[in-house]
Write a protein that binds this DNA or RNA. Structure first.
Lengths: 199, 199
DNA sequence: CCTTTCACATACCAACGGTATGTTGAGTTG
DNA sequence: CAACTCAACATACCGTTGGTATGTGAAAGG
């Protein structure tokens, strides 16, 4: 299994990664409040001393896990958008990528449910802004500047769409029905399309 | 102050109400995880025995508080809608009432932030459905049936709009700027109006 | 009155997050 | 290469937490 070989830096990295992986799994299964540090360190095969050597406490550990999840979601959104050239398609592809990515159980629980409660909404919002939400507002701003979007301030619209997609992802994760994704997607598409400037 | 007069039923009701009021205040100020039962019972002037006589535990107490908050928000939404006769105005008035009501600190923290994390999203969603979200979907369904709304399934649209308004309320509560409410409201109005059937 | 029952108060427990200190081996230095 | 340093943990412990089991005094019932 995980031998205690390697340099000190390797051991440090491996321990930290194991802690992150196991806590992410347990947070997903039982929620932040439903899992104790004892359970986490037991699953990782270390002790609380190791955990507190790497993280400042339980909230800091959760924050590190959340940042990891948000980086992955942000990368998925950005990747889907960059695969397109048309600005409007970049927006829609990014939104669809966010919807599918956020339906995963760990994203759902860690990012959408427990995140705001553990860190407080303001901190959660700041993290969300720096990862995936930023792409949405930038995309909308570009569309507004080139006149493709109906003229309006983009910041409020970005908030509304972000909230709409968050809620939709939570709903989709619970339904498990593939048809629901298409229903939500057409509804969201209608909302997006309605903000496109009529030629 | 609160004398121990009255019949046994009156004492019971008074104790329960005090417990609900104080826990609601403390949950709002420090969040669910940030306040202990000791603090709650001290503020209410009773002991843990009284609390456990009225509620099954800390999550059950929070659930009772949440249901109270949701009833108030639902009543505000329904009241604003029923003050109008035109179906479309009922929708917009209800949405605006939800936005303003959900900006209050207790609604924000208890209903929007801690609610899903404490009860789990499925239970939270069931409570939300039975209070304010139901009005939204019913209003949309009525508009769809009478042909005022662009033909589409209303359930996904209701979910998207509900999430959008939740997020908007969270943002508005943090900004404190009165202009932001108007910005968000015009953005939301544009989204709603775009789903109105063009004559 | 006397008894029962309700509405709590008191005392207590296991588990929790967090800390203080001990230990070991890799990396550095003379 | 031997002595030393210090990072990377392990171990033991503490105060507090949510939860429970039991005691108690006043109101309701006969």
């Amino acid at each position: 299994m995980s031998e205690e070989t390697g340099s000190r830096a390797e051991q440090r990295a491996r321990t930290r990664r194991t802690l992150l992986d196991q806590s992410r799994r347990l947070f997903t299964e039982h929620g932040y409040g439903g899992v104790g540090l004892a359970e986490i360190v037991a699953a990782a095969g270390v002790t609380k001393g190791a955990l507190y050597h790497h993280f400042d406490g339980k909230p800091a550990l959760f924050r590190a896990v959340l940042e990891q999840v948000q980086r992955e979601v942000g990368a998925a959104v950005a990747g889907a958008a960059e695969a397109r050239t048309d600005p409007w398609e970049q927006l829609t592809a990014g939104c669809r990528a966010f919807l599918t990515a956020s339906t995963a159980p760990d994203v759902r629980r860690i990012m959408l449910v427990d995140g705001p409660a553990v860190l407080g909404w303001n901190q959660w919002r700041a993290l969300d802004e720096s990862s995936s939400a930023r792409h949405l507002e930038e995309s909308l701003a570009a569309l507004a500047e080139s006149g493709i979007l109906r003229p309006q301030p983009v910041a409020p619209l970005a908030r509304l769409l972000s909230g709409a997609m968050n809620e939709a992802a939570l709903w989709l994760a619970g339904s498990g029905d593939g048809q629901d994704l298409e229903d939500v997607w057409s509804a969201l598409s209608r909302l997006l399309e309605s903000q496109r400037r009529s030629e």
